[in-house]
Deep mutational scan, measured.
Amino acid sequence: MAMNGTITTWFKDKGFGFIKDENGDNRYFHVIKVANPDLIKKDAAVTFEPTTNNKGLSAYAVKVVPL
């Protein structure tokens, strides 16, 4: 089920960042999981599918909501 969130941290040079989800949890995401990576920036609103990996909470099918 899709969730909403906000990008809180973005490491462009490393290709990953973190999203604060609607429950207040931080989720890892990688640029290859983003549909529109050219719009990635700190504080951008996103929708995504929540999941977990071996390191904890993460996100896939991430879409940055255009302003």
Rank of each mutant, 00 (worst) to 15 (best):
K42W: 06
V64R: 00
R27I: 05
G17K: 02
A45V: 11
T52A: 12
M3I: 07
K63A: 08
G56R: 12
F48Y: 02
K41L: 07
K42P: 08
D43Q: 09
T52P: 05
R27V: 06
T9W: 13
N53M: 08
F48Q: 00
F11T: 03
D38N: 11
M3Y: 06
D21Y: 02
E22N: 07
M3C: 07
V46E: 00
Y28F: 13
K20F: 11
K55A: 08
E22Y: 06
K33I: 12
K55T: 08
V31E: 07
V62N: 01
A44R: 09
S58D: 04
P50L: 04
V65A: 07
S58R: 05
E49Q: 15
V31T: 07
A44D: 03
I19F: 03
T8Q: 09
W10D: 01
G15W: 05
T51D: 10
K55C: 13
P66H: 11
K63Y: 13
F11H: 07
E49K: 15
T51F: 13
V34M: 04
E22F: 06
P66W: 09
M1I: 13
P66Y: 10
E49G: 06
L39M: 13
V65H: 11
V34S: 05
N26I: 15
A61T: 05
D38V: 08
P37H: 05
N54Q: 13
M1C: 13
F11P: 02
T52Y: 12
V62P: 01
Y60G: 13
G15C: 08
I7M: 01
M1P: 12
N36K: 05
V62K: 00
G5C: 03
V62Y: 01
D21L: 03
W10I: 04
W10K: 01
T8V: 14
A45L: 12
M3G: 04
E22M: 08
K41W: 07
V65W: 11
R27F: 07
N23G: 05
K20R: 13
N26H: 12
F18P: 00
D13P: 05
V46A: 02
D13A: 11
T9A: 15
W10A: 02
V64K: 00
A61K: 12
K33N: 15
D25T: 06
T52G: 10
G56E: 04
K14T: 05
N36G: 03
T52M: 12
P37W: 05
F29E: 00
H30Q: 09
F16Q: 02
K41Y: 08
H30T: 12
V31A: 08
D43K: 09
E49P: 01
N54K: 14
A44V: 10
F16G: 01
T52W: 11
A45I: 10
L39A: 10
V64M: 04
G17H: 01
V46H: 01
E49I: 15
K41C: 11
A35E: 13
